[in-house]
Each structure stands twice: as C-alpha cells, then as structure tokens.
C-alpha cells in the first residue's frame, strides 16, 4: 500500500518510466525496500485504473504522470497522520499477550529471549554504523538505520514495561 503512495510521490517530480520509478524508489528507501518490476507495473496499472496517473507513449515506451486526482491523493497522504490508523497489530505484542495467558514464568522467558535478540540486533547495527562511517553522505541509508534502531529501542522499552508489570502483579498475588 505504501508503494502506491511512494510512486505517486516520485511522479510529483515529473513524468517517469516504470523501470525508472523502480530504481528511484529503491534509492529513496536506502536499499531496504527492493521492488520487482512486475510489482511496479501492477501498481501503475491500478493507479491508471483509478484515474490517479495518466499514461503516454514515449517513443514506444510507456511513461507515467500524475493526474489532478493523483496530486490530490498524494496531498491527502502527506496530511494523514498515524493517529488516523487502526490500532497496531504487531506480532511481538500478540506474542506477549498470548504468553501472559500461559503464566508469568513463560512470559518472562519470552521477554528474555526477545530482549536478548533485540539487543544483539542493536549491537549489529552499531557495528555496521562504525563500518559505514566512511560514507556519511548516504542520508537515506542513515535515516533507515535510525528508524530500525529506534524501533528496536521502543520494543525493548515495552518489554521492560511488560516485565515491570508482571513483577508488580507477582508481588500482589
């Protein structure tokens, strides 16, 4: 779904070919979001069907540009904020909620395992950053790396809260 909006955002800069869109999307996302060409063309066909992009023949090659509706749709996407989204349904949360049903000790074991893995992930990212220090100009890659790090940190904080709440409940009972 975000691929759709990503393509609209790239087309906001002007007319593009399908393969050009694939390449620019991958560059803009720091190489962590590879697209296959088929996925790009399927998305473009849907955007055309919905009247959000127009197709033109460019020396026998299809090229795409935003329509007025496409520009409007893109504007609405920039305006939308996370509070408009449905509540998150991520797997870690589901796993913890299920683990608690199996008893505090089981839940603590799940917390321990996930915490260690997330910390190992943070350590890995830190080492990668040290290795990447030679090319500080790749802003997209740096931003993606930051996002992955802060999400892992957020998960770790949440696991700490889970443990504190479990400990508090254990003391009460």
């Amino acid at each position: 779904m975000a691929v759709r909006e990503g393509l609209l955002a790239l087309l906001d800069d002007g007319r593009r070919h399908g393969y050009q869109l694939k390449t620019e999307f991958e560059q803009a996302t720091g190489g962590v979001w590879p697209l296959n060409v088929g996925q790009v063309y399927t998305t473009l066909e849907r955007l055309e069907r919905d009247g959000l992009v127009a197709v033109a023949d460019d020396n026998g090659q299809k090229s795409y540009e935003l329509t007025a509706s496409g520009r409007e749709e893109l504007g609405a996407w920039w305006q939308a904020v996370p509070v408009d989204d449905p509540p998150p349904r991520d797997e870690l949360m589901l796993k913890m909620l299920m683990a608690i049903e199996h008893g505090a000790d089981h839940a603590l074991a799940v917390i321990t395992r996930h915490r260690t893995a997330l910390l190992a992930l943070l350590q890995l990212r830190r080492r990668e950053r040290r290795d990447d220090a030679a090319r500080p100009d790749d802003l997209a890659a740096a931003l993606v790396s930051d996002a992955l790090v802060v999400r892992a940190e957020a998960d770790l904080r949440w696991l700490d809260l889970c443990e504190s709440r479990l400990a508090a409940r254990k003391e009460v009972t």
Binding site: T112, L119, L122, Q123, R126, V149, D160
Partner: peptide, 17 residues
C-alpha cells in the same frame, strides 16, 4: 546501564534478574 542504546556499544550484554 538501563539504556539499550548505550548497551549496544558493548561487545557483550548480560541481563540480570
């Protein structure tokens, strides 16, 4: 430390409970 960000600098992290 209680900060994961700082612990990530370490060669190894141990968890106490």
């Amino acid at each position: 430390t209680h900060e994961p960000r700082f612990a990530s600098y370490a060669d190894r992290v141990v968890f106490l409970r």
